Computed example of a mutant assay.
Amino acid sequence: MNINVVCPHCLEVSSIEKKESYSEENCTQCGESLLDSRPIDGNANILENFITNSDLPVIVDFWAPWCGPCIAMAPHFELAAMAMPLQAQFLKINNDDEQTLGSKLLIASIPAVLVFKEGKEIDRFVGARSSSQIKEWVKQYL
């Protein structure tokens, strides 16, 4: 069985074999590693690309550079993302830069972390969490 994932480098869709774990997996378009699971800086168009085309859960952190809890959580969000290659795809969206998107998704407080699956938001949490808390929360949607 194959799954579609969005390449974190070229943002094109790759169809890859679904496995329990991966030691190596490269983008079918640009050849870069799909195991690079650091959060991608996103915007409305990038988010739409991911939630439309990825078969993996898409985890999105809405944050702002002036937000203390957002800054405190940032390394934890990155650690969680790096621990889950090809299990989920992680994005960070600056809510100040994407206010229309934030309004559309009813982002009232930040940090706000949303999970999208099959094109729809299925859950969210507000407030800073540790990397282990983020990973445990994401695992229920795998």
Rank of each mutant, 00 (worst) to 15 (best):
I46H: 02
D55P: 00
I93A: 01
M84Y: 07
S33P: 12
C70I: 02
L34W: 05
P69A: 15
E17W: 03
N53H: 12
E24W: 07
N49F: 04
C30S: 05
C67R: 13
L86H: 07
I93M: 03
A88V: 01
L79R: 15
P65I: 03
N26Q: 11
Q87S: 02
A80I: 03
F77T: 00
A81W: 06
A44L: 09
L91N: 03
I46L: 13
V58W: 11
V60P: 00
T52R: 14
M82E: 15
N49D: 05
N43K: 06
G31D: 08
K18I: 00
I46T: 10
A88T: 07
C30L: 11
F62I: 09
L91D: 03
D36T: 08
Y22A: 04
D55T: 11
L34S: 05
H76Y: 08
A72E: 13
P57K: 02
L86K: 06
M84G: 09
A44H: 06
S33T: 13
A44R: 14
V60C: 03
K92S: 11
N95A: 10
F62Y: 15
T28F: 07
L35T: 02
E98T: 11
M82V: 14
Q29H: 10
C30H: 12
W66N: 07
E25Q: 06
V58C: 01
E98W: 11
E20M: 10
L91H: 09
Q89L: 04
N94Y: 07
A74R: 00
M84E: 08
N43T: 11
P85L: 08
A74L: 02
P75H: 11
M82N: 14
R38S: 10
D41P: 01
M73Y: 12
H76S: 10
S54L: 04
T52M: 03
I16Y: 00
F50V: 05
F77V: 05
L79D: 15
N43C: 04
I71S: 00
D61S: 14
A44G: 12
I46N: 12
N95S: 14
A81E: 12
D96V: 09
L56V: 08
N94F: 10
S23E: 12
K18W: 01
N45P: 00
A64D: 04
W63V: 00
E98M: 13
F90A: 06
M82G: 11
D41C: 07
E98R: 15
P39T: 02
S33D: 13
L35V: 00
L47N: 13
S37A: 02
W63C: 00
M82H: 12
G68D: 08
F62L: 11
K18R: 09
D61K: 12
E24H: 05
N94K: 04
A80Q: 06
M84L: 15
L91T: 06
N53W: 02
A83C: 02
S21A: 05
A88L: 08
V58H: 05
F90G: 12
D61T: 10
A80R: 06
P57T: 03
P57W: 03
A83S: 15
L56M: 05
A44M: 11
A83W: 05
L56D: 00
W66D: 01
F77E: 06
I51S: 01
R38G: 10
E24Q: 08
M73H: 09
N94H: 09
K19Q: 15
G42H: 11
F90D: 05
N43Y: 04
E20K: 10
L86F: 13
N45M: 06
A74T: 04
L86S: 06
I40G: 02
Q87N: 15
W66E: 13
P85E: 15
F62P: 12
Y22V: 00
